[in-house]
């Protein structure tokens, strides 16, 4: 039987209460939805002395649109299934929504929060890839104040993020983008229940000029979320050069043959997904 080890449980309803409480414990676990965190407890791979339920913090349960800054802030406590009805209709949000609607199944999306999906650092998580592609920032709070980190720089290695003890992910923020095409593709294998590759891309094309194009990848093949810089390309007829660059990117990644497949297979999957994404965002 799987049962969590013993711990204290506290529910926090105010952000300042969180900062006051979190320092009193040596190994706190912060949960909003549960799901993966509860599973890790049941597997006893984490043994926190306290579980802090932040789902009641209303400040983190908001979606804010700042029209002046053209910016969206999604609070950590927002559930994945809620995004559909609250996100604005710009292209960046569209890509984020595409990612959010493919997380797990309906029940997991009802339980899982935006914060959880961003904080875990599992290479199979969806939101980080889309957020990295649109250039979103993680908004991190602590007693000392607030800092922002680009989502693409949040992940150190699988299950390891740049968040420190005493810090809390308040949410993510990004600039709204208009008139972009988006693409979100992933390759799932039932055995070992994993994504070999996940690719998110977004581009603005006018005639034959590429005004802006961004891409991020993740999945077990690559281990963590990585942003790929494609700013040098400005014409859609450079598609072969773009693909060459992606080819080079994939071939230069260090990968190994492991339970998730051979290097040859992983590269094939990544490139297939990337080329598909490029075709989708650049097609007329």
């Amino acid at each position: 039987m799987k049962a969590p080890p013993s711990f204290d449980f506290i529910r926090i309803n105010k952000l300042n209460e969180f900062y006051e409480n979190v320092d009193r414990y040596s190994s706190p676990l912060i949960i909003s939805g549960g799901t993966v965190a509860v599973l890790m407890l049941k597997n006893r791979v984490i043994r926190p002395d306290v579980v802090i339920d932040i789902s009641g913090i209303e400040e983190l349960n908001v979606l804010k649109k700042d029209k002046e800054k053209n910016e969206v802030f999604i609070g950590s406590n927002i559930k994945l299934h809620e995004l559909k009805s609250i996100l604005p209709d710009d292209s960046a949000s569209e890509l984020i929504l595409k990612a959010a609607t493919t997380v797990g199944d309906i029940a997991i999306r009802s339980m899982g929060s935006v914060g959880g999906n961003v904080c875990l650092g599992d290479p199979g998580n969806d939101l980080p890839v889309a957020l990295a592609a649109v250039g979103a920032n993680a908004v991190v709070g602590s007693r000392e104040g607030i800092r922002t980190v680009p989502v693409s720089e949040c992940y150190v290695k699988p299950f390891k993020t740049v968040l420190k003890k005493g810090e809390i992910l308040l949410g993510v923020s990004y600039k709204m983008l208009y008139g972009y095409r988006t693409s979100y593709n992933k390759f799932f294998i039932n055995f070992l229940d994993h994504y070999v590759g996940i690719v998110a891309a977004i581009a603005k094309v006018e005639g034959i000029s590429i005004k802006d194009m961004r891409m991020a990848v993740s999945g077990e093949a690559i281990g963590t979320t990585v942003k790929i810089d494609l700013a040098e390309f400005s014409k859609i007829d450079e598609i072969n050069a773009i693909k060459d660059k992606l080819n080079k990117f994939v071939n230069e990644r260090s990968m190994s043959d492991d339970r998730f497949g051979t290097v040859k297979f992983k590269k094939k999957v990544l490139l297939t997904l990337m080329f598909q994404a490029i075709d989708e965002v650049l097609k007329a």
Partner: peptide, 22 residues
């Protein structure tokens, strides 16, 4: 582990897997 859904309940009208919640 949330794989099977045999523990599914509605929580405020939303389906959740009760083995993955405290």
């Amino acid at each position: 582990t949330g794989s099977c859904g045999a523990c599914m309940v509605l929580l405020d009208g939303k389906p959740v897997k009760s083995c993955l919640m405290l």
